Amino acid sequence: MKYILALDTSTEACSAALLVNDNGQTSEYVEFDVCPREHNKRILAMTESVLQQASINLDEVDLIAYGKGPGSFTGVRIATGIVQGLALGANKPALGVSTLAAMAHGVYRNQFNLSGDIFVVPAIDARMNEIYMAAYKVTGKGIVETLVNEQVCPPESALEQLNQQQKWTAIGTGWQTYQQELSTQLVADIYNQQPFPSALDIAFIAAEQAKTQTLESASDISPVYVRDQVTWQKMPGK
C-alpha cells in the first residue's frame, strides 16, 4: 500500500498522519497536538493538512487506519465516527489499531540507536482508580507483538503477571498518575518524551497488519472500550 492515512483522538492528544511507501522509501507527514476537548474542532483540519503536505487527496489513499482504543470514551468515538464517514464517503477500507500498541511502537520509533527487541508496558489512566494496560515486545524491525492483552484493572495489581527479570520500558498517563503503585510492582524505565499515542505509529502498525488481516469496511468500524458496559452505535442503516 502506498498511502496510509491514520487518525487518533483516543487521549488528550489529537493527531493525523500520512505514511507514504514509494518503492521501499517511506515519507511521513504528521500533525500532532495535545489539545484536550478540542478534538472535534481539530482532527479534520489535521487530516486535510497531511494530505495537502503530500499533495494528494483522499481518493488516492489506500487505507484509513485509526486508533480504536482503549482510551477516552468520547475521544475513541470521535475518531471512529470520523473514519466511518471518510471510509464510507470515499469508499476506502479501514483498519483499527490498538492505541496501547501504538504507544509501544512510539517508544521503538523514537529510540534512534535501538538495536534488538524492546519490551514495553503502556498504561493509560482510565479514571475511577483504574488503568488500561497491555504489554508488548517490539522487534528490532518494528513489529509489535502482544505479550499481555489489553485490560482495565486497578493499578495496585496491574503488573504482577509480567516477567520481573525482563527489562521493561514504561509509557503513558497511567504511569504518570500511578507511578508509586506501579513502580513498586515492576522496575521499569519510564519513557516521558511522549506519553500519548500518535497517528504515525498507528499508520506503521496498520501497514504491517494489512499484510495479513482482513480490512474493514465502513460498516465494520468499531471502537474498543475494554470496559464491557459501554456500547457503540454504528451509523444509521449499517
Results as ranks from 00 to 15, higher is better:
4 I>T: 15
4 I>G: 00
4 I>E: 01
5 L>M: 01
5 L>Y: 10
6 A>Q: 04
6 A>N: 08
7 L>H: 13
9 T>I: 12
9 T>N: 00
9 T>A: 03
10 S>Y: 11
10 S>T: 15
11 T>R: 06
11 T>F: 08
13 A>G: 11
14 C>E: 02
14 C>H: 07
16 A>F: 08
21 N>L: 14
21 N>Y: 08
22 D>T: 12
22 D>L: 14
22 D>M: 11
23 N>M: 12
23 N>H: 09
24 G>M: 06
25 Q>M: 08
26 T>H: 09
28 E>R: 13
29 Y>H: 15
29 Y>Q: 07
29 Y>W: 09
30 V>A: 01
31 E>N: 09
31 E>F: 03
32 F>C: 05
32 F>K: 12
34 V>H: 05
36 P>C: 06
39 H>E: 06
41 K>A: 15
43 I>R: 13
45 A>C: 00
46 M>L: 09
50 V>D: 04
51 L>Y: 00
52 Q>C: 08
52 Q>K: 14
53 Q>C: 03
58 L>K: 06
58 L>I: 14
59 D>M: 08
59 D>W: 10
60 E>N: 13
63 L>I: 13
64 I>Q: 01
64 I>H: 12
64 I>C: 11
65 A>N: 07
66 Y>Q: 08
66 Y>G: 00
67 G>Y: 08
67 G>I: 09
67 G>A: 03
67 G>F: 13
68 K>Y: 06
69 G>E: 10
69 G>H: 11
70 P>N: 03
71 G>C: 10
73 F>I: 15
73 F>Y: 15
78 I>S: 03
79 A>D: 07
79 A>Q: 01
80 T>N: 05
81 G>Y: 06
83 V>R: 03
84 Q>R: 15
88 L>F: 12
88 L>G: 01
89 G>K: 05
89 G>Y: 06
90 A>R: 01
91 N>Q: 13
94 A>W: 04
94 A>Y: 06
94 A>D: 01
95 L>K: 02
96 G>P: 10
96 G>K: 11
97 V>E: 04
100 L>P: 10
104 A>N: 08
105 H>M: 10
105 H>E: 11
105 H>D: 08
106 G>R: 14
107 V>A: 11
108 Y>E: 02
109 R>Q: 02
109 R>C: 05
110 N>E: 13
111 Q>D: 14
111 Q>I: 06
113 N>M: 04
113 N>Y: 10
113 N>L: 13
116 G>F: 06
116 G>I: 11
117 D>E: 02
117 D>L: 10
119 F>S: 09
120 V>F: 07
121 V>S: 13
121 V>P: 09
123 A>P: 14
124 I>Q: 04
125 D>T: 11
127 R>K: 14
128 M>C: 05
129 N>P: 01
129 N>V: 05
130 E>G: 03
130 E>C: 07
131 I>Q: 03
131 I>T: 06
133 M>D: 02
133 M>Q: 02
134 A>G: 12
135 A>K: 09
136 Y>V: 10
137 K>D: 04
138 V>T: 05
141 K>C: 00
141 K>G: 12
142 G>H: 09
143 I>P: 00
143 I>S: 10
